Simulated assay, not measured.
Amino acid sequence: MRRERRHGSKGRAQMNLPALAVALLILTMVTGLSVGIADRALIGADRNPTTRRAAVATSERLVSADSPLTVRSNVVNATTLDGFNASRLTAWFPVVGERDVRIRLGETVVAKRGSPTGGVTIRRIVLVENRSAVTLTPPLSTSDPQFTLPRRTPNATLAVHPPDGTTVSVVRANGRVVLRNASGIDGRFHVPLSRFETTRFSFEADGRLPTGSVNVTYYPAKTRKAVLAVTVDA
């Protein structure tokens, strides 16, 4: 009985040899196919390394803090972007050289030179900033005329028209003198401000400065996310 079991085990082992050989053959074929695909991918990636470097460098400079298109790093100025074109692309970002280039924001092509049909595309998530004018007539206390803007803004336009018998001599923004005239401040004035803090205006006057004596136009920002795609074709 023991001898029969040994013969049975040997027979089964011999029967499994062809199956093992087939499995090894399949594994070898799959491994070879995978290596071949990986090799082709690496060859494709390295085929145009100069083009890829140009695409990466252009995308980085487009969204850098000192780019003509940004208000700060990775925040694109929508107004400046509206005026962007092929000639400015070449002048502002000479790294593209003589290659065909396309700059796309979302689904909109904002600048294009040549006819890029392939090449390398680098995508970056950015914020697009829009600023629109908002005008308000702030309520003023006759004894201590001052008001705070609801939103941050890099500048504002003040329209100061005090009533007869009142002279406004100084206007401050967050304690900093932005307008001064001992003879009287009366008219429209463009005032640069800090975009990093909310602004509080205060007025020095020798009489009443009721509500309606001052109007202000400021430019709050609205931002949205978008994908900026830079395509460079050799």
Rank of each mutant, 00 (worst) to 15 (best):
R180F: 04
N130M: 13
R152I: 03
V177M: 01
R131F: 08
P162H: 11
E107T: 15
I103H: 07
A111W: 15
L140A: 01
S115V: 04
G184W: 01
S115K: 11
R180Q: 13
I103Q: 15
E98S: 15
L105D: 10
T167K: 04
I122L: 07
R151P: 04
L136Y: 02
G114T: 05
R99W: 05
V160D: 04
P163R: 03
R131L: 12
S183A: 10
N181D: 13
A111D: 11
R152V: 05
R99H: 05
R151N: 12
L158P: 08
A156K: 02
R172N: 00
R176T: 14
R172I: 00
R104G: 03
S183R: 01
N155H: 13
L140W: 07
H161M: 10
A159T: 15
S132H: 10
R102K: 13
D164L: 10
T167L: 02
S169G: 09
R152L: 07
E107Y: 05
R176C: 07
A111Q: 10
R131I: 15
V128N: 09
D164I: 06
R113I: 12
R176S: 10
R104L: 11
V101C: 03
G187W: 08
A182C: 07
P145G: 00
V134A: 09
S141I: 09
P116L: 07
G175R: 00
D144T: 12
A182N: 14
T148G: 12
P116T: 10
G175C: 01
V134D: 00
E107M: 09
I125N: 00
R152D: 02
T137Q: 09
P116Y: 09
V120R: 10
R104V: 13
D144G: 05
V110C: 05
L127V: 06
L179F: 13
E107W: 06
L179I: 06
S115N: 07
P162K: 05
P138A: 06
L158C: 08
S141Y: 12
L105W: 06
A173E: 02
D144E: 11
T153W: 04
R151S: 08
R172L: 00
A173T: 03
T157P: 14
K112H: 09
P145W: 02
P145S: 13
L127T: 02
T142M: 05
E129Y: 04
S143C: 01
A159W: 11
I185V: 12
A111S: 15
V170N: 11
P116G: 14
V170D: 15
R151M: 14
I122F: 12
V168K: 04
V101D: 03
E98K: 14
I125L: 04
Q146Y: 02
I122G: 13
F147T: 00
S183K: 03
A156C: 13
E129Q: 15
T157L: 13
A156T: 14
R104H: 05
N174C: 04
T135M: 11
R99Q: 08
V160H: 06
V101T: 03
T142R: 10
A156L: 06
L105Y: 10
S183L: 10
I125A: 00
T137V: 04
G187V: 08
R124V: 01
L158V: 03
P139I: 03
R151V: 11
V126H: 11
H161Y: 11
Q146M: 09
G165V: 15
R123W: 07
R104N: 02
S169T: 15
V170M: 11
R124S: 01
R113N: 04
R99E: 01
P154C: 06
I122C: 05
R152Y: 00
S115D: 10
